[in-house]
Structures are given as structure tokens and as C-alpha cells.
Design a binder for these strands. Structure first.
Length: 261
DNA sequence: CAATGTGTTGAGGG
DNA sequence: TCCCTCAACACATT
């Protein structure tokens, strides 16, 4: 389910599980998750190194080691698990990092849509992350408003475009737009000053709550908790929710709370 | 069997 | 150039 809050959760997990610990073994159980390096190359580069404090940008996680940096992206189904060395390995555990102190970090991923890279230096990291916009949790209001004003397309498309703003995925974008009472198909640059300010505020509020929960909390009062219902209704007003497709992704909104401009 | 899905990238078109 | 949609990647679920 990885969007920004999930990846931030993985960052904290990596930090508490692995920071300062020596990497004793690297066991690649499925090389299909490796990009630009093979199992032997990964092992040779990392064994004997020590994980430092991990960083995150958008949905990317950067695990520094003092030498090369392990770069992780979780796609739609990836996750990170911290366990003891002797704990049983599960079906989709693709890479195992055995650490000093009897711990083992596992990169788990069912669909293998993204995976692991190894960056040799900072310019390598920059190249891998491509043209990412500012992190959604770090961007300030002025910059956020400037970004939106410069966009010609739809609001939701702008929010989920990682080169505009890094970190928001399909569910979070719908959630934030619903809270800000803005239709996803509003032209991004046509928002009023008040709209933009409200959108920024709701983005921050939604992210803050999700990050402390480690994910988008599918509570009753959240749109996200309703989107897969048989007869999805707005948690605020009870109106039947609308569903369309935008940029190939399922998009849910309330026709009453999010009226046309 | 067909459609769907929380990720990204690249191709093709307006 | 900007932006849109679709296919592809792999796999489970409806």
C-alpha cells in the first residue's frame, strides 16, 4: 500500500531495526527485484558495511551505509519487515539482510513492480530518483501554490505526479481532495487563493495523521475507508459517491461535498 | 476467462 | 512543450 506515510513507516522501521548494525549476510532469494546489479554485486557491496540513518524522499527510501546507498521503492505491494535471524522466511520475502545482533531485515514484495537499486554516490542517487518534485511533507505553502498554478491539467493528476510533488498516491490524493472539498477534475491552475490554501492545509493534516498511523487509516470518517464498499457513501453527508477513472486510476469523490467549480 | 488494483516508465497522440 | 491515455511489469482477488 505504499504511499508517503507507509514509506515513512518503513524508514522508521529500518532505522530502529538496522541503524548502526553491521550487515553480515545478504541473501537474494529472487533477483527479479534487483535493478542494475546482480545478487553477487549487491552482496559484495554491502556485506561488512553498517547501515546509517535512512532518509526518504516521496515514496523512495535511501539506506546509507557509509559506502554505497541502498535505494528502495515499494511499488504497490512492497514492504519491509524486521525479524530475528531464526524466524521463518515467508513467500514474498525477496531479499534478506542478516544483521549483527541476531536481527534480519527483509524486503518483501508480492508483485515486484519496483525493487532495489544500489547507488555508488550522491549523483547516482539523483539519477535514480529522476525528476522528483519536492517531498509532500516538506514543501512549504508558497512553493505548493506555485506548483499548482503552473499546471495546466487536472488537480488530481497534478497531486499524484511525482515530478510535481513527491509522495502522494491514488488513495491519498482522493482523500485530500475530498477533505478540501475540491473535485479531482478541477483544472489545477484555476483554483482560488483560498482553495489552494485549504488544499495545502488538508494535505498536511491528512499526511500528519497518516504518518503517525504508519499508513492511511481506513477509518469510518475517511473517504479511503469507504471506497471499496458495495454502495459507497460519503462519510460526511451520506450521498452516493461517484467513481471515474483519471490517468488510468480509480477515482472516487462526493458530488455534493465536492461540487463543480 | 475478464476486470481490477495503493507503483512507475515509456510510447503515441492531440 | 505540456498533458493525456494506454500498455507493460507480476500476482491475487472478485
Amino acid at each position: 500500500m505504499p504511499e508517503l506515510p507507509d514509506v515513512e513507516g518503513f524508514r522508521l522501521l529500518l532505522e530502529s531495526c538496522a541503524s548502526g548494525r553491521m550487515i553480515r549476510h545478504v541473501d537474494v532469494r529472487d533477483p527479479g527485484v534487483l535493478h542494475g546489479i546482480d545478487a553477487r554485486g549487491l552482496r559484495d557491496a554491502l556485506v561488512g558495511r553498517r547501515f546509517g540513518t535512512p532518509r526518504r524522499h516521496g515514496k523512495w527510501l535511501l539506506a546509507r551505509t557509509g559506502g554505497p546507498t541502498l535505494v528502495l521503492h515499494f511499488g504497490m505491494t512492497g514492504s519491509l519487515v524486521c525479524a530475528r535471524t531464526e524466524d521463518p522466511v515467508e513467500a514474498y520475502d525477496r531479499v534478506l539482510f542478516t544483521l549483527a545482533g541476531g536481527r534480519r531485515l527483509r524486503f518483501r514484495d508480492q508483485r515486484k513492480l519496483q525493487g532495489l537499486w544500489l547507488a555508488h554516490d550522491d549523483s547516482d542517487v539523483d539519477r535514480l530518483l529522476g525528476r522528483q518534485g519536492p517531498d509532500a511533507l516538506a514543501v512549504d505553502r508558497t512553493e505548493f501554490e506555485t506548483l499548482l498554478a503552473a499546471r495546466r491539467g487536472h488537480l488530481k493528476t497534478a497531486l499524484t505526479d511525482q515530478s510535481v510533488l513527491a509522495g502522494l498516491g491514488n488513495l491519498l490524493a482522493d482523500e485530500i481532495l475530498w477533505r478540501a472539498r475540491l473535485r479531482p477534475d478541477r483544472p489545477a491552475r484555476d483554483l482560488t487563493e483560498a482553495d489552494r490554501r485549504r488544499l495545502y492545509g488538508e494535505m498536511r493534516r491528512t499526511l500528519r495523521t497518516s504518518v503517525s498511523a504508519g499508513r492511511v487509516p481506513p477509518r469510518d470518517s475517511w473517504l479511503t475507508g469507504r471506497r471499496d464498499d458495495h454502495d459507497p457513501r460519503c462519510p460526511r453527508c451520506g450521498t452516493a459517491l461517484c467513481r471515474t477513472r483519471m490517468a488510468g486510476r480509480g477515482t472516487v469523490w462526493c458530488p455534493r461535498c465536492q461540487p463543480a467549480a
